[in-house]
Structures are given as structure tokens and as C-alpha cells.
Design a protein around this nucleic acid. Structure first.
Lengths: 237, 237
DNA sequence: CGGGCACTTGATAGTAATCAAGTCCGGTGG
DNA sequence: CCACCGGACTTGATTACTATCAAGTGCCCG
């Protein structure tokens, strides 16, 4: 795990803390206090930010890039639990209790993070109780998403699962495009498979099928152009 | 939804609020104040406490009995997300935000609950911030459990899933027994299937297989005697 | 431009869902 | 307390689907 000083624009300008909703209730003084406590790090694609069962020593805020949080089963199958992007954070569950990390976290691309030490954060929460509310909000959002995931994985067909994950990516990463919505995929085929409990071959086949049906168009391996969103929504049901 | 006055011993003696960890930080005065705000209800097996997409008007604490929280997919498949028993509560996510229920809740047996109105609860949280911490704890526990569920459903074999759910029940409902651990199952075969995304027939077959292997013994339809816990743990990996 | 890795596509096998009886449990009423 | 009835459970046969194994193609990065 290579630790380097963060050089991204946001951090150089000391604005990183301002972009994160968790600190939105702080005034300028409090904010500059926070900024002084923040340690910056950056990770290359494939580097680990955290290892399952390891002690968590603070809150990690993604400032640039994205990461996957995953577990590996005894047989070696990887299950991705969360994908965190700019503005997301993790480690909040371990700020108030002594417990090791429930997952490993790996950079999916060049990723810059802001790190706040556990003790510093505990002080901050005590001084600004609104932060606790923001954390609760974040916990609720994660719960909502995981409940959706459980329903999708337990009660939906495989076709619906693939459609659902593409819709999720369209909502999160989609950019308007003349023919529809251009989606920059955060995961390769194997990653998508590990996110919804399938194999890469099955994901590949189902995506090809969606292309045949004219619902989407694959643009290289890393992008998808969603042509018919309503049809994809119907397929995800 | 039949609403009746609660007649269970705990409530008659006004002790119900005391048994719930969420109020453990309150002193006697605060507690009696809480007790005056509590409304009691009881539900028969099969009755709905809450319907998906319905407004949630307060916190529901299970005082006696148990319930399942579930969603029904468009094709009619039911996915159970949580099982709540004595001391558990739900609805906490809707206390701080306006959002409808993410699931339906149905009584699995005669169930007595304590209900605290949303507004009353918001006042309580403001007066006793420790309650917010308790809620955060509960949210974290639910997150932990759902992450386990996602991993189990996505990355484990079907045999491992059945073993895992039986272990979960053993931990939660198991009572020591001369030959092992006696488990009173909260769900019938179909319910177990809907909890781990399988069909009742498959669950039935896998449980028969575990019995053939001498790992457990079925005692009627509603109980299981776990004979070899280490073997079940190994099978759940 | 070239090589390696990710992706696609095909063939096969394994496993759970489905369809279909038949059995047993458990609650009810005599 | 026992007999009976209905629903839950088990077990079997078949089908459908995805994982696996395998080969070939094409994308992407250096």
C-alpha cells in the first residue's frame, strides 16, 4: 500500500472537505479546523485501501476516483458489497465501536482520498452533532441499497439482475448523449458478475442479448450506450 | 389490521420500555415519560403490521412474538429481508426522513408491539442524544447482517446458504439440549426459502440431506435438533 | 503497432426450479 | 383422548438454466 501526498486540485485548494455532505453543517472556522486534521492519500488502480478483518483507524472519504468494497468467500469467490465514488465515504461504522473491517477495499482506478483519524472524528462528532445525523443518513442509504440488492439477488431472474445493475450504473454514472445515455462502467465484466453473484460469461451473454434486442449498444469494453431506458427498466422488474 | 389494547404482562406492568436497549440510557423519570407515550398493539399470526410503500408513522418495538419484513417482486416472489424478534425494532429509518416503508411487515405468530409516534420520538431524540447512538448501533447491526446475507446469496453454494441460515437460527433461537441445540424455527420451509432465495423443495431436500449426514435431526416440522454444530459451521463456509 | 488480457461465443455438464404425487404433522372437533 | 381433515412437507421425475470448460476474437495500453 503506497502512501503518497495528495496532489489533486481539490485538495491543493483545501476544498476537499467542502465537497462532502458530511461536513455541510460546519461553518468556515470549523471547516478549516477539519481540513487541518485531514490526511491525504492516493492509490493506484488495484491497490488496497483496507483489508478485511483489519483494524479501521478512521473515516475514508473518496475525493477522486472510485473503489470497491468486497469479501472473498472461502472458496475464493469474490462478492462486491459496495462501490464508492466521489463524495462517498466508508469506515463510519467503526468510528463508534471497536470492530474490524467487514470488507476489503480496492481502488478501481487512480483514487484520491481524505483520511480523518478515528479520535479526531469522535471529537468532531461531539462538537457538531449534526455530523452524526449525516452519518445516520449515509447508513440508511447503504441499508436501502443493500435491501435492494438482497431482493434483486434473491427474488429476480438473472436477466432482471443484469438489467438492474446496468440501470444502477446509468443512474450513477450515466451522461446524456444524442442517442441515449452513455454509461462509463465502473467494473469490468468479472466485476459486474461479482457484484450480482454470477459469472463473467453469463454477464457477457446477457449483455450481448440486450444489445441484440436494441436496448443498448456496447462501446468498446468500458462503455455502454443505453438506447432504450424504459425497456431496460421493464427488463429489470 | 386489528388494533387491540396490549394485555401482555410486560406492558401491564409498564416494563416494556425498560427491556429495550434503545432506552437503556434513560433515567427513571424519562422512562416513565416514554411509557406514557407508548401505544400498545397486538397482531395475530399472518396479520400485517405495515405495508410496503405505506407511510411509517412511528417506531415499532417488538415486545413479544416475531415478525418478518419482506418485499414481493413483480412476478410474485417474496424476499424476506429481516426477521425481528423480542427487543428488535423497525421504522427507525423513517423517523428522520419522509420516506415510505421499504418493506411489508407481517406477524409470524401472536405478536405484541409498542408503538412510539414519530413526533414524540423526534422530541425524545433531541432530549436524549444517546438514543440516536442506539439507533446508529441498530442500523450498523442491520447493515452487518445484510452484508452477510449478500455475501451468502452471491458467493456461496446453495448447501452453504441453507447451513448458514440454520446456524443463524441456532444462534438466535437455539436452546441447549442434552443431544445438542434445539432450534424453534421462526419460519416454515417456504419462509426459509424466501429468506435465502430458493424454493421450498430445495430447502426441504437440503435439510433432509443434513439429517442423513447426522448433522441435525428434524423434530416435527417446526423444530430442528442440531447435533453437530461444528459440521454445520463447516458446511456453511 | 503489437502483445496480453479481457471479452465473446460455443459445447457440455451439473444443479436447482418446476411439475407432480404421496406422506406426515398438527390442530380441531367429536 | 382419539380420529379426522387440511395444509405443510417430502420425495421423485423432468426440464430449464447457469456454471464450467474451452477456444477464438478483439480491445486497449504501452
Amino acid at each position: 500500500m503506497d502512501k503518497t501526498i495528495c496532489t489533486c486540485d481539490l485538495c491543493k485548494n483545501k476544498l476537499c472537505a467542502r465537497t462532502v455532505s458530511i461536513f455541510s453543517s460546519l461553518d468556515a472556522d470549523q471547516l478549516s479546523e477539519v481540513i487541518n486534521l485531514i490526511v491525504h492519500r492516493q492509490y493506484k488502480k488495484g491497490e488496497l485501501l483496507l483489508l478485511e478483518e483489519e483494524a479501521v483507524n478512521g473515516l475514508v472519504i473518496i475525493n477522486e476516483g472510485q473503489v470497491k468494497a468486497f469479501r472473498t468467500s472461502p472458496e475464493g469467490r469474490e462478492q462486491i458489497l459496495h462501490i464508492f465514488s466521489e463524495g462517498d465515504f466508508f469506515g463510519e461504522r467503526n468510528l463508534l465501536r471497536e470492530q474490524n473491517s467487514p470488507y476489503s477495499v480496492e481502488a478501481l482506478e487512480e483514487t484520491h482520498v481524505c483520511l480523518i483519524d478515528k479520535r479526531d472524528f469522535q471529537v468532531m462528532v461531539r462538537e457538531s452533532p449534526d455530523i452524526a445525523l449525516k452519518i445516520m443518513e449515509a447508513l440508511c442509504e447503504k441499508l436501502d441499497r443493500l435491501e435492494n440488492t438482497v431482493e434483486t439477488m434473491g427474488a429476480r431472474t438473472v436477466d432482471a439482475r443484469v438489467s438492474a445493475v446496468l440501470l444502477e450504473f446509468a443512474n450513477k454514472y450515466g451522461k446524456p448523449h444524442s442517442k441515449g445515455i452513455m454509461i462509463e462502467l465502473p467494473l469490468n465484466r468479472e466485476g459486474i458478475a461479482n457484484y450480482i453473484g454470477l459469472t463473467r460469461e453469463t454477464v457477457s451473454r446477457k449483455m450481448s442479448h440486450l444489445q441484440e434486442d436494441g436496448i443498448l449498444e456496447m462501446v468498446g469494453n468500458k462503455k455502454v450506450l443505453l438506447l432504450d431506458r424504459p425497456a431496460l427498466e421493464k427488463a429489470a422488474e
